[in-house]
C-alpha cells in the first residue's frame, strides 16, 4: 500500500490535520524500529529492566554493610580490583541511563506536541500518581545519582574520606558511609531520592511488561502488585542504611549486631 495513495484518497483532505510526523524525531537512527513510538518505548523498557537489575545488585552490595566493615570493604575492594573492566561496566551503565533518558525525553517532547491544549477541567481518569510523576521522579533520581556519585564514588565533598583505610589496608567504605549518613541532610535527601525511585519503579515495573507486550487483562493487576512490592522492598532495603546510621544501629567504630559475624 502506498502512503501517497493514502493521503490523496482522503475525502476530507482539505480538512485533514497536518501530520506532524514522528520519523524525524530520532534523526540519528533510520530504522523504524528505533524511531517509532513503540520501538523507543521498547528501548525504555529494556534499559529499564537493566537498570532495575543494577539497582537490585547495588542494593545487595550495600546490604553487606550490616555484617560489618569487613564485608562491605571487601566487596568494594573486589569491585576496584576489576580495574579497566570496572570502567567498561560504568560506561555501559552510562549508555543505558543515557538511552533511557534520551528516548524518554523524545517521547515526552512528542507527547507535548501531540496535546496542544489541555481541558478546562482536569480529570485524572484512572491514572495513578506514580504514572503521572514518572518524569519528575526520574529527574530527581538523576539529580540524586549525580550527587551520590560525587559523594561516594568521586568523594569530592569530603576528599579526606579517600584516605580512610581499614585494618586490612583497604579503603574504609564502611566508615565513609557512616560519616556521610551521619549528616541528617544527606540522609534526608537520600531517603527522598530512594522514595521517588520506588515510586518510579512501582509504575515502571508493571509498565514495562505492558510495553513489551507481556500483559493480558488477567495478568496486569498481578504485574501491578508485583511492581509495587518490588519497589517497596527496594525502598526498604536502601532506606534502612541511613536510618540505621541515624538511629545508631550502624556506627563507627563497628559494633557487631551479631556475635558470630565479623
Amino acid at each position: 500500500m502506498s502512503s501517497t495513495a493514502n493521503k490523496e484518497s482522503t475525502g476530507t483532505s482539505s480538512l485533514s490535520s497536518k501530520p506532524s510526523g514522528k520519523s524525524s524525531a530520532c534523526c540519528t537512527c533510520s530504522s523504524p524500529l528505533l524511531s517509532s513510538s513503540i520501538g523507543r518505548k521498547w528501548i525504555v523498557a529494556i534499559t529499564g529492566i537493566l537498570l532495575i537489575l543494577f539497582v537490585s545488585g547495588h542494593l545487595l552490595g550495600n546490604l553487606t554493610i550490616y555484617p560489618g566493615p569487613n564485608w562491605i570493604n571487601a566487596y568494594a575492594e573486589h569491585l576496584q580490583s576489576l580495574g579497566p573492566f570496572l570502567w567498561v561496566i560504568r560506561l555501559v551503565l552510562l549508555a543505558i541511563v543515557g538511552l533511557h533518558i534520551t528516548c524518554t525525553i523524545q517521547l515526552w517532547m512528542e507527547n507535548r506536541a501531540a496535546t496542544p491544549q489541555k481541558y478546562a477541567v482536569t480529570n485524572t481518569l484512572q491514572t495513578t500518581i506514580y504514572a503521572r510523576s514518572m518524569r519528575l521522579t526520574g529527574l530527581v533520581v538523576i539529580a540524586f545519582i549525580i550527587f551520590h556519585l560525587a559523594q561516594f564514588t568521586w568523594q569530592g565533598f569530603n576528599p579526606v574520606t579517600r584516605t580512610w583505610i581499614d585494618a586490612q589496608g583497604r579503603h574504609d567504605v564502611y566508615r565513609m558511609v557512616i560519616a556521610g549518613f551521619s549528616n541528617p541532610f544527606v540522609s534526608a535527601f537520600y531517603l527522598l531520592a530512594v522514595g521517588l525511585l520506588a515510586m518510579h519503579l512501582s509504575h515502571g515495573i508493571s509498565s514495562l511488561f505492558q510495553t513489551l507486550g507481556l500483559t493480558t487483562a488477567k495478568l496486569r493487576p498481578l504485574f501491578e502488585r508485583a511492581g509495587r512490592i518490588i519497589a517497596l522492598v527496594i525502598f526498604l532495603g536502601y532506606a534502612s542504611i541511613p536510618l540505621s546510621v541515624l538511629l545508631g544501629i550502624l556506627r563507627y567504630p563497628h559494633v557487631s549486631l551479631c556475635p558470630f559475624v565479623h
Binding site: 500500500m1 502506498s2 495513495a5 490523496e8 484518497s9 475525502g11
Partner: peptide
C-alpha cells in the same frame, strides 16, 4: 480499496 487509491472517499458530504 481507499488505501489502494481505487476509491475516493468523500466524508461529511
Amino acid at each position: 480499496q481507499i488505501g489502494l487509491g481505487r476509491v475516493q472517499m468523500h466524508e461529511h458530504t
